[in-house]
Design a protein around this nucleic acid. Structure first.
Length: 651
DNA sequence: CAAAACTGCCTTTTT
DNA sequence: GGCAGTTTTG
């Protein structure tokens, strides 16, 4: 634990003020790289030095990555005491509350978590039941509308009231049915975490009081990304003691699509009259060249606080832009560059980050990095949970944990194939809807009544035996890993993987996902000393596992959204093409300014070297398509496109 | 009636 | 390029 003066030394006047203003509401407007995380962590340590117990401090971030980073820094600053500070994402904070108070909001003790892919399946099922063709309502569009409704605290009945046309009404009906489905299936989706928590605090003054008493000091990181339910939750906790410190930057608001409301940070002083305000404008992260590039881009946004970052570091290398043929060349050039620099002992692998707009871009890089033998880690993205094998096994576990989870049951009922085909499933589903029962229950009834075809009947017996055996082991609190192993072998999953992927190398890669689940289970069991399946599933869905080795010497590969709040010596900002950044979709939705902020976030991650790349062609939907350099590159260079890197025809 | 072969559709970002 | 949904085959 550091002493008071050690803690505060090296802070500039504004940072110092942000740290020592501990009482009452405080707004910290912190530009990129101005020591925001440092201020939050030092402020936390300072509070503890002032005699505030760590368990009275709540620190909220938006991504797991940021939460881990924060915890780590806090540990370095004040050692083991850091563990007692509550530090996590809104979602992890909320799910803990919901678990603890499940009966107050009418949820079963163990409930499942419906991720966005389950959500999509569920929505498709509701559309089918409503006889709405997928051609008239795109399920994905419905999904994002519903999610946006929930994140704006618009209930189904409000959605009906707000509806302006038939399409809106269809969405509202789907929303209503979807919510019924969630209740019936005893699952909650990510958006529900916030809504249930909000309802819990609104309707149970005792719970609210308890939280208010516990969390006497609250800090919110990335406040510009707060949406309405998040705001309401925090407000409920701090409204009386008003010890809330929010930190954010309107130029880095990149979650508008998730209901984040930039007005929350702009209106903070109105919400908390008399709030203190600190502006941090000195950038300690990057060279002046990098800051200049960032400023050149962001000043094109109209709705923002007028401000300009200054680099404390001073001049460095100039930022560079590279044109490459396609995404394969892009990846191989960058890998070559990394190898070269590491080979010359100029840098470590961990000094490098590759940042991209979409979650599928990393694929090309993964291939290249692997073949170049460069160690790397892929952060976020859909890597793990969207792998078929992972979803399959997790679905089994979810059905064992919660037989009412229809989506998961339907996924596994004939995976691996066991003679239960579409005909049988349709019949069961029709009966289930008619009788208002769960599919699994109806299946069992039909089976017992000998109504199933021979093949289907046999298959169901085997499935149900395997599930029951696993269920009994789980109930008896037997070793979780052993239970999983037994289940996987009961359903012949290894054979299934081998059958689906005849190439042994591919099969092995696929199987690794299954192994990873077993690893998770083992870690969970060791950490918690219990074989609680529901807890394991929930923790896994939230990616709360501490098993990432943060100081390993590897290259980081991630999306721009995942990169916010992080910094790297050398940054590659890749795929800077029209249609990708800014993304084509955002041009339609009129969110170009948010795309520009994404670009700004990317540029300001770099400390010393920034290389931006764009391709002249890129494979889209498996077909090569010509690309044009991003408008943001032109903005950065001061509108005139230099003809040395852009063919005149593309300007 | 289930499994294999085939077709047409996408894909923004996260918890 | 990959996958869900559809058609053809066994």
């Amino acid at each position: 634990m550091k002493t008071q003066s050690q803690l505060l030394e090296g802070l500039n006047t504004d940072q110092h003020r942000a740290v020592v203003t501990t009482e009452g509401p405080l707004l910290v407007l912190a530009g990129a790289g101005t020591g925001k995380t440092r201020v939050i962590t030092i402020r936390t340590a300072h509070l503890m030095n002032e005699g505030i117990a760590p368990e009275n401090i709540l620190l909220v971030t938006f991504t797991n990555k940021a939460a881990r980073e924060m915890r780590e820094r806090l540990r370095k600053l004040c050692g083991e005491k850091a563990k007692e500070v509550t530090c996590g994402t809104f979602h992890s904070f909320c799910i803990r509350l919901i678990r603890e108070h499940h009966e107050k909001i009418g949820l079963p003790k163990s409930f499942g978590i419906c991720d966005s892919s389950d959500q999509l399946n569920a929505i498709k099922a509701q559309l089918r039941e409503l006889r709405i063709a997928e051609t008239s309502v795109n399920p994905r569009a419905a999904q994002s509308r519903i999610s946006l409704y929930k994140n704006s605290m618009i209930l189904p009945e409000d959605a009906f009231k707000e509806a302006e046309d038939d399409y809106d009404i269809m969405i509202a009906r789907c929303y209503e049915k979807y919510q019924e489905y969630l209740r019936r299936s005893r699952v909650v989706d990510f958006d529900d975490f916030l809504l249930y928590t909000h309802a819990l605090l609104r309707d149970n003054e005792d719970v609210r009081l308890q939280l208010e008493k516990q969390f006497k000091y609250v800090m919110i990181d990335e406040y510009q990304d707060t949406n309405t339910p998040q705001y309401e939750i925090i407000h409920a906790i701090v409204k009386n003691h008003r010890n809330i410190c929010v930190v954010g930057d309107d130029d880095q608001s990149i979650y508008g699509w998730r209901g984040a409301d930039i007005q929350k940070i702009l209106g903070f002083e109105k919400d908390f009259p008399g709030a203190g305000k600190v502006y941090l404008g000195t950038n300690y992260r990057s060279t002046q060249e990098i800051i200049d590039a960032a400023n050149m881009v962001i000043k094109n946004n109209s709705s923002r606080h007028e401000k300009e970052l200054r680099s404390a570091y001073g001049s460095g290398e100039s930022v560079s832009i590279l044109r490459v043929e396609d995404e394969i060349h892009e990846a191989s050039h960058i890998c070559g560059d990394i190898r070269h620099q590491v080979g010359l002992k100029q840098a470590h692998y961990r000094d490098f980050a590759i940042l991209c707009r979409t979650a599928q871009q990393p694929r090309a890089f993964e291939t290249e990095l692997r073949s170049a033998n460069i160690p790397y880690k892929l952060i976020g993205g859909q890597s793990f949970f969207d792998r078929k094998e992972v979803r399959d096994i997790l679905s089994y576990l979810r059905v064992i944990d919660n037989p009412a989870d229809e989506t998961s049951f339907l996924r596994i009922v004939n995976t691996p194939p066991r003679g239960i085909g579409k005909g049988t499933i349709d019949k069961i589903l029709a009966k289930a809807t008619e009788e208002g029962k769960g599919a699994y229950a109806v299946f069992k009834e039909s089976h017992d009544a000998n109504e199933l075809a021979t093949a289907a009947s046999k298959g169901f017996s085997r499935l149900s035996d395997a599930l029951r055996a696993a269920y009994i082991s789980v109930q008896a609190n037997e070793d979780l890993v052993a239970t999983l192993r037994k289940l996987i072998s009961d359903i012949d999953y290894h054979e299934e993987v081998a059958r689906c992927y005849p190439d042994p190398d591919t099969a092995q890669v696929r199987w690794a996902g299954v192994d990873e689940i077993l690893n998770f289970a083992e870690n969970y069991q060791r950490k918690n000393g219990a074989a609680d399946l529901n807890g394991f599933l929930q923790e896994m869905m939230l990616d709360e596992s501490d098993n990432d080795d943060d100081d390993s010497d590897v290259v980081t590969l991630m999306t721009l959204h995942a990169a916010k709040g992080l910094e790297f010596r050398n940054v590659y900002l890749v795929g800077l093409e029209e249609g990708l950044l800014p993304h084509k979709r955002s041009a339609i939705d009129g969110n170009i300014e948010e795309e520009r902020r994404l670009m700004y976030v990317g540029v300001t991650r770099a400390q010393r070297l920034l290389l931006m790349t764009f391709c002249t062609a890129r494979a889209k939907f498996g077909k090569l398509q010509a690309c044009h350099p991003s408008r943001f590159l032109f903005e950065m260079k001061g509108k005139a496109p230099p003809d040395d890197w852009v063919p005149a025809s593309e300007v």
